[in-house]
């Protein structure tokens, strides 16, 4: 049985509305969102643009507060942003005045961990995202894909309880996106992070996740949860199998409502 206690991340009846300038009624963005995510699970939140999935991620991260409902991480209520719930944004959002290594060390320095250990840990993750040799580069000297890999390492190095990703590959070109998906798949295989992955891309959700929560158009509600049956490790060739196409068609139908 799934219980509240083995949930790594729990969202309980979250609702959120925004007031619109010049209008009396509120714009309801999220309506009674509930889900829970287990240890090491990779869950995608899939929805059309404007369905409030980024708002949902902001609430999970603690950047915004829900009007009602609760978010809990490992049984603790979420009160604000924390390295326990590290975020990879749609754009890299690296600190432009720090080089790759210092960007990745930033969170560890704040944790006041041992310098030597931090450096070692940083170089492990720099290698994991294949940025070794680029430690001294500044973000502006890197391509978009490399910047996003640095952002990924910056989050992973903190060993978060949950990694929150907000359409992290949406602004990359197709080829870079494929290689980033590959990379994330292998990282998840290696470190088994608990992941919440926001996307509007059905194929991406199917390829990456253990489970997909499908959101409706505004106000966003979770209309269906789909367990993804494919074995891991997965690779891009999965996307050309028949089972994949069947599931994809089913999800698209569900998205169209």
């Amino acid at each position: 049985m799934r219980s509240m206690h083995d949930a790594k991340l729990l969202a309980d009846s979250i609702s959120k509305s925004y007031s619109r300038p010049g209008e009396k009624n509120f714009l309801k963005v999220l309506d009674d969102i509930r889900f829970h995510i287990r240890e090491s699970e990779f869950v995608s939140i899939l929805g059309p643009s404007g369905c409030g999935k980024s708002t949902l991620l902001n609430i999970l991260a603690g950047f915004e507060t829900a009007d009602c409902g609760d978010v809990a991480c490992c049984g603790e209520p979420v009160k604000g942003p924390s390295p326990e719930r590290a975020v990879v944004f749609q754009s890299p959002v690296l600190f432009p005045w720090l080089d790759v290594k210092d960007n990745i060390l930033y969170g560890l320095k704040l944790k006041k961990e041992d310098r030597k250990e931090s450096e070692d840990l940083a170089s492990v993750y720099i290698k994991a995202v294949a940025l070794d040799g680029f430690e001294e580069y500044f973000p502006s000297q890197l391509s978009g894909g490399m910047q996003q890999r640095a952002a990924l390492a910056r989050a992973l190095v903190l060993r978060p309880k949950v990694l929150l990703m907000d359409e992290p590959f949406a602004s990359l070109d197709a080829q870079t996106r494929y290689s980033m998906q590959q990379l994330l798949l292998s990282l998840h295989g290696k470190y088994r992070h608990t992941m919440v992955f926001i996307t509007h891309d059905v194929e991406e959700a199917l390829l990456m996740s253990d489970r997909i929560c499908i959101m409706s158009k505004r106000p966003g509600r979770i209309v269906e949860e789909i367990d993804v049956p494919f074995e891991r490790p997965r690779s891009l060739s999965l996307t050309s199998t028949q089972e994949f196409s069947i599931l994809k068609t089913k999800i698209i139908a569900s998205l169209m409502g």
Binding site: F63, S82, P83, A86, V87, F89, V93, F95, Y106
Partner: peptide, 14 residues
């Protein structure tokens, strides 16, 4: 200062 940079700093523990 970009609000995203601030969010990045906060989620990294600042």
């Amino acid at each position: 200062v970009s609000p995203l940079l601030i969010r990045a700093g906060r989620m990294l523990g600042a």
